[in-house]
Design a protein around this nucleic acid. Structure first.
Lengths: 168, 168
DNA sequence: ATGGATGCAAACCATTTGCAGTGTA
DNA sequence: TACACTGCAAATGGTTTGCATCCAT
C-alpha cells in the first residue's frame, strides 16, 4: 500500500473506532484486524479470505468471529456487500438488456428498462481488466412492501431476507 | 400471463429446443418444464422456487435435476444468473460511489470509477418499486488472466470459481 | 439399443448457533 | 466486576455427486 492508501485505511479505522463507541460495541483486537483487512484490501475478500489473512496476525481467530464481525460492520454501515446478500443464486431468462432493482431486506428482484442506462459506455480502465460481456445496473433499496412493514428490530435480524418474508 | 408474454415464452421455448438439439442435449419432460418456469416467471426464481413450481406439474422431479438443468441452461446461454455466481458473499469497505467489474470465470471483483456512471438517474418506474439506497453498475466479463488461460473444457467445470483459481 | 438424464441418498461445504470461558470497558 | 465477545464444536441448509435405473434419440 502506498502512502495515500494508508491514509485511507487509517481514516476508515478511525471511522470504525468512533462508530463502535457510539454504537456501544466493543473494540476488540480481532475486530480491529478484521476491519483493517477489509478496509485495506483491493480484492473484495470473502469471509474466508479475510479469515486467512487475519489469522496470520491473530493466529487464534476463528472463522465464526470473522462472519459475526463482517455482518456487524455491515450493520454499522462501515462495509457493503457485493452482489445479492445472504441469498442463493437466482436465475433470469430475460436475455434482453435490462437492469435490476433488489430489495436488500427481503431479496425481491425486479427488472426494469431504461434507454438511458442501456446507452452507457464503460470506461477505458475497465477494458484493461478484461473482456466485457454484460453491463447491468443494480439498484438496491428497500421495497415498498418491506418499508410498509417497517416494524421490529433495528439490528439486523439473523437470516433476514433468506427465506423469511418471501416477496409477493 | 397475457398474450404477449405467452408469445415471449413460446419463443424462448423454441430457442431452447433448437439450442438443445444443436448442442446434443436431450429434451426431457422435466427440462422443458424447468425452462418454462424460469422463462415465464417475473420473479427471478432461485433453484428452490423453480423446484416448488415445477413439482406441481411434474411431481417426481428432484431438486438436483433442477440444479443440473439450470446450470446447463446457463451454459447454453439461455439463462443468466443474478448477482455473483456460485460464490460466497464478498465484502467491500469502499463506501465511495463506485462500480464493479466481475469475472464470471474466476470471480475476480475490481472497483472502477466513472463520473458518467455516477451521474445516472434511475427511471420513475424504479421509484415505484421502493426506496433507492445505492445504484451500481456491474460489468461482467472474462478477466485477462482467465482469457490468457483459455484452455480446458468448454463445458462449465463444476465448482469453477468457488475456490479454484483464486484471483491474484 | 444405448448413452445421456433422472432420482435417490449420502456427501460437501459455507455459514450459523449454543455455550462456557475470556477480555474489554 | 459485568456483560459483551470469542472460540469451540455441533447444527444447519443449500448445493453437489455417485450410482443404479430409465427414457429420448
Amino acid at each position: 500500500l502506498n502512502k495515500a492508501d494508508r491514509l485511507t485505511v487509517d481514516c476508515r479505522l478511525d471511522r470504525f473506532r468512533s462508530a463502535a463507541s457510539s454504537a456501544g460495541v466493543k473494540l476488540t483486537h480481532q475486530r480491529l484486524e478484521i476491519f483493517r483487512e477489509v478496509a485495506s484490501s483491493l480484492e473484495h475478500p470473502d469471509a474466508e479470505a479475510v479469515f486467512r489473512a487475519v489469522r496470520r496476525r491473530v493466529p487464534t481467530v476463528s472463522i465464526d468471529t470473522v462472519y459475526r464481525t463482517l455482518w456487524m460492520l455491515n450493520d454499522l454501515g462501515l462495509v457493503t456487500t457485493l452482489g445479492p446478500r445472504r441469498e442463493s443464486v437466482r436465475f433470469d431468462a430475460n436475455l434482453d438488456r435490462h437492469h435490476h432493482y433488489i430489495c436488500v431486506r427481503c431479496g425481491l428482484a425486479r427488472d426494469f428498462d431504461s434507454a438511458e442506462l442501456d446507452a452507457l459506455g464503460v470506461p477505458a480502465a475497465v477494458q484493461a481488466m478484461g473482456r466485457v460481456i454484460t453491463t447491468q445496473v443494480e439498484v438496491r433499496g428497500i421495497c415498498s412492501r418491506c418499508a410498509a412493514a417497517k416494524n421490529r428490530t433495528l439490528k439486523r435480524n439473523p437470516r433476514a431476507g433468506s427465506r423469511a418474508a418471501t416477496p409477493r
